[in-house]
């Protein structure tokens, strides 16, 4: 991986040419991001070697432990909102006992991984892009390359490992809190007994729902790490460039997770 040279393009002559250039650059950057992901993934067996251990542990801490607060609040309220909205509708048909299934299945399949992904992209992903972008602008990444320290191993791999490990774990945590939030609303506002809520959930939620959700979380973790590191490493033009890298990280991660979330749902639930 070479430090990026500044790029200069001749002015475009019209909207078609501008569109064409945009498409070409997007495809090129996607290719570069995938190559960076593969290069970092190839270094993953060295994650707990002497020279990488400390960085991996620090990233696990930043990604996992430091995100717990915001994830707890979001997960709890997501479960509560789900229970309230579905419960109020189901009450019209005297079916409010089924909120156990509704909340649990939706949390396990979609909302758990997706809400966790959104929070991690906005907090951890943007921080990764800002940190690496600042390092590029301040020539720290160039310094690493001159010291023959591969940025893919030193910067990308620890963040990739942290997100691949922490996203499924945090998703389990989000699922648990979301389901508990639903149970609290069911008990206090919809007159569904706690035992009935969990019986109902156990009866209709399948193991597959959990596994597919966790697989999605793993994929989302790879997406966030790849997009954030790639945007950071591609940052140019000082503070403005770092700001753009941060903004693009959040937007591209959101959209990619949304599209991939649909594709995976389609693949696993035909």
């Amino acid at each position: 991986m070479n430090t990026r040279e500044p790029e200069f393009f001749p002015p475009t002559s019209g909207p078609i040419q501008r569109l064409g250039r945009g498409v070409m650059l997007t495809l090129r950057e996607t290719g570069r991001a995938l190559l960076m992901f593969l290069e970092a993934a190839a270094f993953m067996p060295m994650a707990f070697s002497r020279r990488s251990r400390a960085d991996v542990v620090r990233q696990l801490f930043i990604t996992g432990i430091k995100s717990l607060g915001v994830i707890s609040v979001v997960a709890l309220f997501t479960g509560m909102i789900l229970a309230l909205q579905t419960g109020l509708e189901l009450r019209r048909f005297a079916q409010e006992v089924n909120i156990g299934t509704a909340v649990t299945v939706v949390m396990l399949r979609e909302m758990g991984p997706f809400m966790t992904g959104l929070i991690i992209a906005a907090s951890v992903g943007s921080a990764i892009a800002a940190q690496i972008g600042t390092m590029v602008v301040q020539e720290e990444v160039a310094a690493l390359e001159v010291m023959t320290i591969n940025p893919a191993r030193f910067l990308v791999m620890p963040r990739l490992v942290a997100l691949l490990v922490m996203m499924p774990l945090l998703t389990v945590y989000t699922n648990v809190l979301g389901i508990i939030g639903g149970a609290v609303v069911g008990t206090t506002q919809l007159n569904v007994a706690m035992v009935a809520y969990f019986d109902n959930a156990r009866q209709f939620a399948a193991n597959k729902d959990l596994y597919v959700g966790l697989f999605k979380a793993l994929v989302f973790g790879a997406v966030i790490a790849t997009v954030a590191c790639h945007q950071g490493l591609a940052a140019t033009s000082g503070a403005v460039g770092v700001g753009q890298a941060t903004r693009r990280t959040v937007i591209v991660s959101f959209l990619t997770m949304l599209v991939l979330g649909y594709v995976l749902t389609r693949v696993f639930y035909k």
Binding site: R50, Q138, E139, E140, A142, A143, M147, T148, I149, F154
Partner: peptide, 24 residues
């Protein structure tokens, strides 16, 4: 030696200087 030093901000002085030795 880069213009601004290009030190890694999350490491102290000793760890910055030790970096090439630890990594290579």
């Amino acid at each position: 030696l880069f213009q601004g030093g290009a030190l890694l901000q999350w490491m102290n002085v000793a760890d910055n200087v030790a970096l090439p030795l630890r990594q290579n």
